[in-house]
Amino acid sequence: MGGLIPLTIRDLKRWYRNPVSAVVGVIQPIFWIVLFGSAFDIAKFGPAGGASSAFFEGAPDYITYLMGGILTIIGLFTGMFSGVNIIWDRRLGILQRFLIAPINRASIVFSRILSSVARIGVQIVILFVVALLIPDGLKIDHGITAMDIVIIVSAVLMISFIFSSLFSIIAVRTTKMESIFGIVNLINLPLMFASYAMFPPDLMANWLSNVAKYNPVSWSAQSIRLVIIHGNLNGAESHTVLIYMLGLLALAVFMLIITYVVSNKEIRE
């Protein structure tokens, strides 16, 4: 797909040259981990933490439990905002230069998606380091294998891909920045809270827990969580992770096809 690599590099250059957006993008999830993660000490639930810890998949602290959710949410947020950049390019007139060029027009959209996914890669690493360094932070007692890393990274990247594709499709014809911000604001809350990103299903009202079951944010958060908390997964856990990862993969492939078709045909100046 001609144009994909140069356009992705251009987008990444803009990102790292704009220290404010780059730093904010990294600091915000750190706030989530440090403040939200520390605000809620699960060891204080129930006698000696035993009963409550079972709710939290046996996590030693809330940060360890939350890590899968936060990584997923970063993927979700960064993905959602990749559509905004397409609208920026349209409003600044830059998009016209790309439309004139002899490239497959889907590459204009996919370069945005790809650069979002690359940025998240950097954020994952920074967030892991911070979570491990803070007091009562992330604890991985069992060590971490290459397979664990593959599961964590691919879950976040797939979530990011799914949502950046979705919002890029919206941005393909949208000219108003406000519209996309409105949609982001409208759906980020239900996506976050109607999922297992922050809280375990057993703590939720039954109806919400049933809804959250079908939310891809839950699939990613729960897969990462199982890997971080348990490490060497037993049969049932492996099965759960496999199902969730396949669900994410199917959704990502579906979004890939839809995005390709829509962006190639419908992108307008």
Binding site: G3, I5, P6, L7, K13, R97, P102
Partner: peptide, 29 residues
């Protein structure tokens, strides 16, 4: 699109890139 060149009415170069980088981007496209 391969054999035509266009100077549109609106500015289409990227302000965040240098003059040279803008041309490099177009060359890559």
């Amino acid at each position: 699109r391969r054999i035509t060149g266009v100077v549109p009415q609106d500015l289409t170069t990227d302000g965040d890139l240098s003059g040279k980088e803008n041309l490099k981007l177009v060359a890559d496209l």
